[in-house]
Each structure stands twice: as C-alpha cells, then as structure tokens.
Amino acid sequence: MRHTDTGDAAAPLLAASDLVKTYGGTEALRGASLDLRAGETVAVTGASGSGKSTLLHCLAGMVRPDSGTVRYAGERLEEAPERRLSELRRTDFGMVFQFGQLIPELTALDNVALPLMLGGSGRTEARERAGTWMERFGVWGQRELRPGQMSGGQAQRTALARALVTGPAVVFADEPTGALDSLASERVMTVLTQTVRESGTAVLLVTHDALVAAYADREVALRDGVTAPAGVGV
C-alpha cells in the first residue's frame, strides 16, 4: 500500500477547487470542486455532457484546468510538470476506462504486469504479482487470452487488476461498467469495492448509472460543469 501521509488525518487526499475548463468555446467545467479522502469512494454523477469525464481528467492530471487548483497529498497538480504527472499516474493512481485501456496485442497477464515492468520489476516477478491480482479478480483462467478474446466483464476485471496492481492510493474509474450488462457490471463493482475496502484505496467513480453510484460512499453531482451538494444532481 502506498499512502502518502499528509500529517493531517482530516485533510483530503485529493482536492479540487473551482475548476474551470473550456474546450474550443464549450465550457466543460464552470467551477467544480471536489474532495476525496483516503480510502473513500466518491461517485461523480450527472447527465451526459455535464463535465464528469473532464473533472476526472483534471483530477488525474491528464488535463490542465484553465483555472482552479488540484491538490494531491499537498502537491499542486495543475502546475506540476508533465513528467511528474506521468509518474504519479504510474505509481499513485490507477486508471479504468469504459474500454480500450488494455493493449490488444498483449496477453491479459502481460497487460496486468505492464505497470510493474514500467516501475522497474523484472518480467518474471511482475507476472507473478500480476497473477495473484488476476486470481483475486476471478480472471486467472483468462490470463493467456488477449483482450479481444475475453468477454467485456472479464476485460474490465483485467483492467481493474491492472489499475490496482501497483497499489495506488487513488483509482480513477470513468464509466467502468458502461459497456457491460447488469450482472457483469455488478461483478466488476463488487470486486472493486471489496478490494479497495481491504487495501484502503480511494476511488473516484464517474458514472451516469445510479445503480453503480450506489456502490460509492457518497455522491457528487455535476450539472452543466458545476458541482452541487449531495443529492442536488437533477
């Protein structure tokens, strides 16, 4: 587990305030704020086009906001250099998207082992550790398959294993069950919540589905690029 100690238990691990982001004349975010404490799962909900994904991209250091601040463990992400952001995403953050994050040419096991190899682990060691995570997520039997040969649910659970294999402090999940049916979606969410509860990993979950949002500890609703207090999502 890789938790950055901020020295203050009450301080949020990740905090965004008054984020504004404009894409070619469209205001994706118009003052969004969000706190994420260590180990908690927060669901970001809202209609399509409300800026959910942009908020996640800003928080994960993938996109720089036009104004506003993002702090991770006291570090200002909006002004950190690209190299540092890339390093953070490799070591402290885990990423799960709707689909497409697995490299189609690699086997499931190599896909999960990749972040460890990037972190400097040897191939054998990386594959061993990746294997234990795949077992935990119920995809050990699919380890030698390539992403195209797996079902959507298996691919997403493999993606979760890849996101969690480095022991991140925060997992960012953008519609992780968007392409799955209800049972596959339930299985992905159950294994995710159980795992992060055990490891104390915080999760930022972007979803438009209330059934998925219900796995979170609390909800932050976005409407037209502005965050509303809990419940004011409609």
Binding site: A60, M62, S86, E87, L88, R89, R90, T91, F93, G94, M95, F97, G100, Q101, L102, I103, P104, L114, P115, L118, R162, A163
Partner: peptide
C-alpha cells in the same frame, strides 16, 4: 489512438 491515449493516461511514459 484510443489505446495509446489510454496508455499515456495510465502513466506509460511516452518514451516507452
């Protein structure tokens, strides 16, 4: 493009 964007998003260095 999509797969590559996802790799960069997950912190795979562009150099790799």
């Amino acid at each position: 493009r999509r797969t590559l964007a996802a790799q960069v998003a997950s912190g795979v260095p562009r150099a790799v």
